[in-house]
Design a protein around this nucleic acid. Structure first.
Lengths: 337, 337
DNA sequence: GACATCTATGTGACCGTGCACATGCGAAGG
DNA sequence: CCTTCGCATGTGCACGGTCACATAGATGTC
């Protein structure tokens, strides 16, 4: 469409200024909508911008302001459903506010790797960072490091000082455990996430709280790794000690694997054992039996993270949110004893 | 850790030059490893860089070179497993080569939206773009638009001129269809993806090719939307017309929903009907019955996309790859008649 | 020995913005 | 009527790199 040829280089702020008959600084003021500009002048400049199809050079702007209007997403999780959908909504929200998004996956969670990542984002002069750092360790390192750049962490960190944000994992876990108890289960096993993960701890705490409150005895939790394969393995192992009637798996993937393991071992879900999960991944409603689980609104979390970060960047006070409450999704994998 | 305080601004190339006793240009040469630098000089400069903990300012470099050493990922897909894992590996590969990654989701697939996205990435002066544009329409617009910036499309586009790349979807679909045929099925329904999607077409073609070659009659395909919910609906509908003994669903999510629908309708998989999917998502092995499907190596695709893009950026010739061949994963959802 | 060539390095301009400061002008205040 | 102030705008420089060109010494060539 655009008339090609013409080796004209892309127009700069001075080209606009010349065409509009003003100084380059006035153009700059229009761009950053400075208060004292006469409406008439503003109009002339905007017309010139239109005519030349001028676009501000982001690199030049970043150089002089040493801020890039870019948000860095630092992620220490790999390909899981939850984080992934949060990231997508972070991007959308940031773009809507005129920020670019650059993502950085942590290959490993050593303090050095985290430090490198933060420094890298620093070099790119990000305006702020959203961290999806589900491991306690990573979170702590982050806290110490991020000096200078606003940062929001998308994890549940009880009593954290900085800006953190998450769904109320404990409440969700508690709700689903109470659901099992209300069905008459008393011997409930928890298939937990890895030791170091914040969310694993929160979900376990919810389970423990609910059990204690109902005066039920708890089993030592089984430590999983979030994968369906582990769930499968755990199901076969658990089948050997049928001293329980329900399992709360810390995520859906493990829950689904677990049901598979139970089936291989000849245990019927939910007739003999009830199984519940956490996350409500898209297939949860369609596996057999459809999985009772806890739904999390990941997109909402991503959007809020961006709102909080922008508030911090702009020096505003953080918006106060009611916590995102995860919702119980009752399906067929849980039944009364 | 780092001695704070000290309002010293971050060191620039000139600070390094002063400390090393050379000109700033010599420092620049060392950084871009220019050939004619005396080893001794180089050493001095490197030491100075070390001492000052100097890091090149990316914005300044981008300003003068008008290239940002950033790769833009343009994605028109939302939260699906395949694209997501490709994107993660694109990031890793790009970072490993010293490129940053910025991601941009297309909210809609109109030509205008695509144009805006490309222009936005242009403003950010990306060095190249990897497009995950699974719809035919998007792909075509992209082809016309991207003038000026190297671009690689991660989709199967037969006869495309530019640089495109994908797993051989047709071969995968064909293999899984032939598998059903070899089990003795003759009446095989295809639950396809949406009309406009390149991969939907490729998978359907593989199905049609295999059927034609075996001299089998084909049914008009059912158009789905990739979701498990649709699969469920389709299962219930299909149960009313049992003129088939096997279904090839164009992705795992629909296949899993389909099995759910069949179960609701009282049809046993695989005894009465065989079901196969495509993608091999992480739960595919753990649903009941475990799903026969086609495994795609998404991370490998992402890595290759980056390699191709970098080759194009550097003006090298594109590396020649053997196509990524999807692999059949035989499980229990398919059985002989 | 004069000149061309190559190597190693330095000098100054320039990329496109925003910022600090200066300036002209009209309104308000005494 | 003069001073003071706020508004609207202009001037020049700085940001931190790279590029084009200049320069000085070493080496080779006839």
């Amino acid at each position: 469409m655009a008339a090609s040829g013409e080796r004209a280089r892309v127009p700069s702020i001075r080209d606009v200024a010349r065409l509009a008959g003003v100084s380059h600084q006035t153009v700059s003021r229009v761009l950053n909508d400075h208060p004292s500009i006469r409406p008439e002048t503003k109009k002339r400049v905007q017309d010139a911008i239109e005519v030349l199809d001028y676009r501000p050079n982001l690199a030049a702007r970043a150089l002089v302001t040493s801020r890039s209007r870019t948000i860095g997403v630092l992620s220490a999780t790999i390909g899981e459903y939850g984080p992934t959908s949060s990231i997508a909504s972070i991007e959308d929200a940031a773009r809507a506010e005129g920020y670019s998004v650059t993502t950085l996956n942590l290959p490993e969670t050593t303090p050095e790797a985290i430090g490198d990542a933060i420094r890298q984002l620093g070099r790119e002069q990000v305006s702020g960072i959203v961290a999806l750092a589900p491991q306690v360790r990573v979170f702590n390192v982050l806290r110490g490091m991020a000096a200078g750049v606003p940062i929001v962490s998308l994890q549940d960190a009880s009593g954290a000082d900085g800006f953190t944000l998450s769904a109320d994992q404990v409440a969700g876990a508690r709700a689903v455990t109470e659901h099992l108890i209300s069905l008459g289960h008393t011997d409930i096993v928890h298939l937990a996430g890895p030791q170091d993960w914040i969310e694993a701890e929160s979900r376990m705490r919810g389970y423990l709280d609910a059990m204690r409150e109902a005066d039920l005895q708890t089993f030592p939790p089984i430590r999983g790794d979030w994968t369906a394969d582990f769930g499968h393995f755990a199901g076969i192992e658990l089948a050997r000690r049928p001293d329980f009637t329900a399992v709360f798996a810390a995520n859906d993937l493990m829950a689904i694997g677990l049901m598979h393991g139970f089936r291989d071992a000849g245990i019927d879900v939910p007739r003999q054992v009830s199984v519940v999960g956490f996350d409500d991944i898209p297939v949860a409603a369609h596996v057999w039996p459809p999985l009772t689980t806890v739904h999390q609104d990941f997109p909402a979390l991503g959007r809020r993270a961006v709102e909080m970060l922008l508030a911090e960047i702009r020096g505003e006070s953080a918006p106060e949110y009611a916590p995102v409450v995860p919702q119980l999704r009752l399906r067929s994998s849980s039944a009364s004893r």
